[in-house]
Amino acid sequence: MNRRDLLRAAALAPLAHTTLTRAAFAQGYPSRNITMIVPFPAGGQADLAARPVAMALERILGKSVIVDNRAGGAGGSVGNAAAARAEPDGHTLLMTLSSLAVLPEADRLFNRPVAYEVSQFTPIARVLADPTLLAVLASAPWKTVQDFVDDAKQRPGQITYGSSGPYGTLHVAMEMFAVSADIKLLHVPFRGAGPALTAILGGTVQAIAAAPGTLKPQVDDGKLRVLANWGAQRIASFPDIPTLQELGYKDVEMYIWAGLFGQSALPAPIVGRLREAMGQVMKSPDVLKTFEASGSLVAYQDAPEFSQFVAADSARLIAAVRKIGRVE
């Protein structure tokens, strides 16, 4: 071997060592318990998605999968950022919502330091993708969206609504609707959809945007009334509820999708193992039954399709945030 070949071999040695190390590591994955960060309190869409998925992953991967609710507020930004900073070894995953792309844009809108970027994550699987629903107390005077809009125009800024935090999924949905309806509502942020739901049930706020799985038990118990859905079509769990597009709000569309992510530097063999496992999870009868009972049907996408979906949905939501502008 001549000097040039020796130098080339020496230069390639670290890369070969890293590749072999990653491959060997992935072969033994997981080597310990897995933490699945949910950047919201219990009771919301991300938590609803995480718990049955974590239980099924435990059976498939042979290690405990611990759901870690990081209820730090900021619309989920705190938990998303924690997952982005975690070691990319597959032992810290993130189950998050469509606000993943919105929150960095909100930081830029307010000239704040950006907590994380979407580019720090790799999509693994989409789990749920429900349209947002507009709900009020069953005792509220509004029977229709038109009732709600007419009252809001008579009393600008006096009708309160709860959300999972500034520029979180539920906040953006309500402001998107408010802009289209030319009304002014009063935003009351909470640390997640669960606390926002508790607030409306207790009369602290008067309206809420939330996922079907979050609202269905309360509607079935006669505590809440759903007025409209932000989707492109009606849904099976609320077949009599019109879409906002049906009612004339053509530019209003919002989905609360929940998906599993790893870090962008996650080795390809580990991503492949997680994709394979999630393919099995999303066919599990127990998982399907749990989601069906909650009113949220499975909307599984594997990583390639999910990556395309995230890119397209993120672009649409970022455009909506820019149109909404700076709101509190």
Results as ranks from 00 to 15, higher is better:
5 D>L: 15
6 L>R: 15
8 R>S: 01
8 R>V: 07
9 A>D: 08
13 A>L: 15
19 T>F: 11
23 A>W: 08
29 Y>H: 09
31 S>Q: 15
33 N>A: 15
41 P>C: 02
42 A>L: 09
43 G>V: 05
46 A>R: 05
50 A>M: 05
51 R>K: 09
53 V>C: 08
56 A>M: 06
57 L>M: 00
58 E>W: 08
58 E>K: 12
59 R>F: 11
60 I>N: 10
62 G>C: 10
62 G>W: 10
64 S>Q: 11
65 V>P: 03
66 I>A: 08
67 V>N: 01
68 D>P: 08
70 R>P: 02
71 A>G: 02
72 G>R: 11
72 G>E: 09
72 G>D: 07
74 A>Q: 14
74 A>W: 07
75 G>P: 11
80 N>H: 06
95 M>D: 06
99 S>E: 13
100 L>S: 07
102 V>A: 15
103 L>M: 01
109 L>W: 04
114 V>H: 04
122 T>W: 00
125 A>C: 03
128 L>R: 07
138 A>T: 07
140 A>K: 04
140 A>H: 01
142 W>F: 03
142 W>N: 05
145 V>A: 03
151 D>I: 01
159 I>Q: 07
160 T>N: 00
160 T>G: 02
161 Y>H: 06
162 G>K: 03
164 S>A: 15
164 S>V: 14
169 T>Q: 00
170 L>W: 00
171 H>G: 06
174 M>L: 12
174 M>R: 00
175 E>M: 15
176 M>K: 07
180 S>Q: 09
181 A>N: 02
184 K>Q: 14
191 R>F: 11
194 G>D: 05
195 P>T: 02
204 T>W: 09
206 Q>N: 03
207 A>F: 10
207 A>H: 09
210 A>L: 03
211 A>L: 10
212 P>D: 13
212 P>N: 13
215 L>H: 03
217 P>T: 00
217 P>Q: 04
219 V>M: 05
225 R>M: 00
226 V>Y: 13
226 V>S: 12
231 G>E: 08
231 G>A: 08
233 Q>T: 14
233 Q>F: 09
234 R>I: 01
236 A>N: 09
237 S>E: 13
239 P>K: 09
242 P>D: 06
244 L>G: 00
246 E>K: 11
246 E>L: 12
246 E>V: 10
248 G>D: 12
258 A>N: 13
258 A>W: 04
260 L>A: 01
262 G>T: 01
262 G>M: 06
267 P>S: 08
269 P>H: 06
271 V>W: 03
279 G>W: 12
281 V>H: 06
284 S>Y: 04
284 S>M: 08
284 S>Q: 14
286 D>M: 05
287 V>S: 12
287 V>Y: 11
287 V>T: 11
289 K>S: 14
289 K>L: 04
295 G>Y: 12
296 S>R: 06
301 Q>A: 14
305 E>S: 14
309 F>T: 02
310 V>F: 14
313 D>T: 13
323 K>A: 13
